[in-house]
Design a binder for these strands. Structure first.
Lengths: 165, 165
DNA sequence: CGGCAATGACTGCCTGGGCAGGCATTATAG
DNA sequence: CTATAATGCCTGCCCAGGCAGTCATTGCCG
């Protein structure tokens, strides 16, 4: 029996976790994209580059699953990054449906300037937080995400399943 | 001198607060809007109705400031809710530029069904959290929001300023 | 082998937000 | 009072994501 943290009778939007998360997310995004603006990058584009760099995804479909992004939108996003010579598409030899993505040198260089900017933004947002508080916040958000992925059968939760049997 | 919670050398996207918040936000929104889907409501529409009910905003401009929403988008959102007879527009007599918004009875009734649904969604997402943990999470998010509003001169931070002198 | 589902990438269409401009109304300065 | 700025609401345009459908390729099963 889950605790009822929120009750319909005494519910006020501004106390809701959903509202607070939404507001934080929006501010964070505006802030980081604002700092990226000179180089004209969006958070999603940055995420794709990061995932490529770290080998967390190598194909478009991978990227969509791991970043929980629409596949149509991903195609167009990849188009842009490719036309800016930051990544390359290459048809896979093994499975000719698949398009392998890879970071170009230019892409890697761009990341070297983007990452410190993002770190600064995060650190300044977390100014006043102790190490423990940040860890607590991370862990709580992860628990929240875990709970919600359990509750949503469809969308995701398939990210860490390819290691089964 | 703010602590450097994140360092460019050892930065991984999936540990970033920004990433975790974004993921939580998206899951939360999908979940609640999914539950609202039968009645076809979006989070923003719901927020407008809630703010009207609680008297947190009475005009379109108020709503935009408090919800940090685009004014053009707000006009269209209000159009929809009005055409569904959930709210009413009325030109103000004092200031004829202003359009006063008010909740209709139908709007209030809809809220009575929406709020329990949202509470359930929040409670089930927070299943496993103690009261203290929820309070901690709320307070951390508020601190984060506060920090970022300081860092962003433009967008907001004007919400609680009309009580000065 | 032959049929059929599943997968990956892509495309077209729709919707909603961001942004800039317009109009009416009100506030302010001279 | 008049000219100018500021405010509130609205509209048009653009862009990105959500969704459905297409096409090619691969896997599966008889």
């Amino acid at each position: 029996m889950p605790k009822s943290h929120y009750k319909p009778d005494s519910f006020h939007l501004r106390d809701s976790i959903g509202y607070l998360i939404k507001r934080s997310q929006r501010l964070m995004q505006e802030r980081i994209e604002g700092l990226f603006e000179q180089q004209n990058f969006t958070l999603q584009q940055w995420a794709v580059l990061m995932y490529l760099r770290d080998g967390l995804a190598t194909t478009t479909a991978d990227m969509c699953r791991n970043l929980h992004h629409d596949s149509g939108a991903m195609t167009r996003l990849v188009d842009q990054l490719e036309s800016r010579k930051l990544i390359e598409r290459r048809r896979s030899a093994d499975d000719r449906r698949v398009v392998e993505l890879s970071l170009t040198e230019a892409g890697a260089e761009v990341l070297d300037t983007l990452i410190p900017t993002a770190c600064d933004a995060l650190n300044s947002a977390l100014d006043g937080f102790t190490r423990e508080e940040v860890k607590t916040l991370q862990s709580m958000l992860r628990r929240l995400i875990g709970r919600m992925e359990e509750l949503m059968p469809n969308s995701a939760a398939a990210s860490d399943k390819e290691k089964v049997s």
